[in-house]
């Protein structure tokens, strides 16, 4: 995990955050996505894992202009479905519960940041619909496939062309 050393200074900066809990089945998919990203990403792009609880996101994205959060989501869609949500003026769509491992959820953190004037200009959530959150290691098949698709989405967003990357 790379820990940001301070607020970013460029408006072009992008912070990618992977959330999840290891050993809880598909819940770790956000971690797996950020771990799958290659090294040597363009300057201004930061990739981090964590945090262990959602309020720490406010600190983590402090000073960032653009943030992408990858997390597990449970909404009743087919496992492996990739949801793309922008934390617009009305918050995340209420029909979609972003599953968090802790007292405050990702959606709470976004709303808390908004209340305190600490929401980055643009926050996008890439959510992977999960199937099994039981206490075990490893992802279920559809979620593992989705990790590759979200990786490709992120690389496109970052502007890195990786030949042979798993696509949609």
């Amino acid at each position: 995990m790379s820990v940001p050393s301070g607020p970013s200074t460029s408006g072009r900066d992008l912070l990618v955050i992977g959330l999840g809990t290891e050993h809880r089945g598909d819940d770790r998919c956000g971690l797996d996505v950020v771990r799958s990203l290659p090294g040597g990403l363009p300057e201004g792009v930061r990739v981090v894992e964590g945090p262990g609880e959602a309020t720490a996101l406010l600190e983590l994205w402090s000073g960032s202009d653009r943030v992408i959060v990858v997390d597990a989501v449970r909404s009743g869609s087919l496992p492996g479905t990739v949801h793309r949500l922008d934390a617009g003026p009305n918050g995340l769509p209420s029909r979609l519960g972003a599953t968090s491992t802790h007292g405050l959820s990702l959606a709470d953190a976004i709303e808390l940041a908004r209340s305190l004037g600490r929401l980055p200009r643009r926050v996008t959530v890439l959510g992977i619909e999960v199937a099994d959150l039981g206490p075990r290691e490893g992802l279920t098949g559809p979620v593992a496939d989705a990790v590759g698709r979200v990786r490709a989405i992120l690389l496109e967003e970052i502007g890195v062309a990786v030949p042979g990357a798993p696509g949609d």
Partner: peptide, 8 residues
């Protein structure tokens, strides 16, 4: 009851 996911 951390290290767990949550449902509502």
């Amino acid at each position: 009851i951390s290290c767990s996911t949550h449902f509502l």
